[in-house]
C-alpha cells in the first residue's frame, strides 16, 4: 500500500475518488455517471491547456500567456465565423490552432533567441494578446446568434454518451502521451528541464526544444480558443481571464515540478480533474464563491508542499513509467 502511494498518479486517483465519494454524501447524485461525465466535459479545456503548460514547465519555463492566447484566438475565429458563415469548420479549427501556434512561437522565439526568462516574456505577451483581442473586436462581443450552428454544435455533439469536447480532450491526452513518451522531442523536454547543461552535452538543442514547447502550448491554447467560445457561445475580451493560473495549478497538483524535468501526462490530467471536481463540487454543497477560491488556493499550496517533500524523501520517483514494468518483467 505504501509503495502504491509512492506513485503520485495513483495517489491522486485515490484522492479524487475519495473526494467524489465525500461530496456524494452531501449532494445526491454527485457520483452519478452522468454528473461525472459532466465534470469531465467541464474540465476538458483545462486538461488540454494543462498538457501544453506541462510541456513548457518540464523545460523549466512557464507560459502565462495561454489564457490570453485563448481569448485572442477565440475572438478571431468567432469573428471570422460571424463574418463568413460559409467557411467550413475544419478551416476555422485549423486557423485557431495556427494562430495559437504562432502566438506561442512568439513566446518561444523571445525565450530562445533573446534569452529572456519565460515568466517575463509571457507576462508581457499575456497583456499584449489580451490587448490584441480588444483591438480586434473593438471591445464588442460576438454572441451566440452571430455564430453558425455548426460552429456552436460540433463540440456538444454526443458520441457514445460523451460530447465531442470530451472526446477531443481524450484524443489530445493520448496524443500528448505519445509525444512525451515516444517522440525524441518529448525526451528532449525532460532532459532540457532535468539538466540543461547535460542536455546540451548530449547533443540536444535546448533552445529549440524550448521553442517547440511554447509552440505546442500555443497551438493547444489556440484550439481551446475555439472550444471555449463554442462551448460558452460567446466571445469577448475577458474570456478565460486568469485561467493561466488554473493550468499552472493543475500541473503543480499533478506533480509536475516547477524546477523542470519531472512530470507526466497522467499527472497533468489528474491535476486538472482534481481542480475540476473541486470547482464543480463546492457550489453544489453550498460553499460561497469566495471560500471556493481560498480552498482552491490552499489545495494548491498543499500540493506544492507535498511535492517538495516527496521529491526530497525518495529522490525523484515520479518519472517511473511503463519501462519500469518492462525491466522487472
Amino acid at each position: 500500500m505504501k509503495k502504491l502511494f509512492k506513485h503520485r498518479e495513483i495517489l491522486l486517483v485515490v484522492i479524487i475518488a475519495i473526494m467524489i465519494a465525500g461530496f456524494a454524501t452531501r449532494a445526491q447524485g454527485f457520483a452519478a455517471p452522468g454528473n461525472l461525465a459532466n465534470i469531465f466535459n467541464d474540465t476538458s479545456i483545462l486538461i488540454i491547456l494543462a498538457l501544453g503548460q506541462m510541456t513548457v514547465i518540464l523545460t523549466k519555463s512557464i507560459d502565462l500567456s495561454v489564457a490570453a492566447n485563448l481569448a485572442f484566438t477565440g475572438m478571431a475565429v468567432a469573428m471570422t465565423d460571424a463574418a463568413y458563415p460559409g467557411l467550413p469548420l475544419v478551416l476555422l479549427v485549423v486557423m485557431a490552432i495556427g494562430i495559437g501556434a504562432f502566438l506561442g512561437a512568439i513566446n518561444g522565439y523571445l525565450v530562445w533567441a533573446l534569452q529572456i526568462p519565460s515568466i517575463v516574456v509571457t507576462l508581457g505577451t499575456l497583456t499584449i494578446y489580451r490587448g490584441m483581442a480588444f483591438v480586434l473586436s473593438g471591445g464588442a462581443w460576438v454572441n451566440a446568434h452571430q455564430m453558425t450552428p455548426t460552429f456552436l454544435n460540433i463540440p456538444r455533439m454526443p458520441l457514445l454518451g460523451l460530447p465531442m469536447l470530451s472526446w477531443i480532450a481524450v484524443a489530445i491526452v493520448i496524443g500528448g502521451w505519445f509525444v512525451m513518451n515516444r517522440l525524441p522531442f518529448g525526451r528532449a523536454t525532460y532532459a532540457s528541464g532535468g539538466n540543461p547543461t547535460a542536455a546540451v552535452y548530449a547533443g540536444i538543442d535546448v533552445g529549440r526544444t524550448l521553442f517547440f514547447a511554447f509552440v505546442l502550448s500555443g497551438a493547444l491554447a489556440g484550439l481551446c480558443g475555439y472550444l471555449w467560445v463554442s462551448r460558452y457561445a460567446v466571445a469577448y475580451v475577458d474570456v478565460a481571464i486568469g485561467f493561466e493560473l488554473d493550468t499552472v495549478a493543475a500541473c503543480v497538483i499533478g506533480g509536475i515540478s516547477i524546477a523542470g524535468g519531472i512530470g507526466s501526462v497522467a499527472g497533468a490530467v489528474l491535476g486538472a480533474l482534481f481542480l475540476g471536481v473541486i470547482k464543480n463540487a463546492l457550489p453544489v454543497i453550498g460553499i460561497s464563491p469566495f471560500a471556493q477560491m481560498a480552498i482552491s488556493g490552499i489545495v494548491i499550496i498543499l500540493a506544492v508542499v507535498f511535492n517538495a517533500r516527496a521529491e526530497r524523501r525518495v529522490g525523484r520517483i515520479i518519472l517511473r513509467n511503463r519501462a519500469a514494468v518492462e525491466v522487472q518483467a
Binding site: G194, N195, A199
Partner: peptide
C-alpha cells in the same frame, strides 16, 4: 554537466 538526475538510468544512457 553529465546527467539529468530526475531521469531514469536507461534514458540518461540513451540520450
Amino acid at each position: 554537466h553529465g546527467l539529468a538526475l530526475p531521469m531514469p538510468i536507461f534514458q540518461n544512457m540513451s540520450l
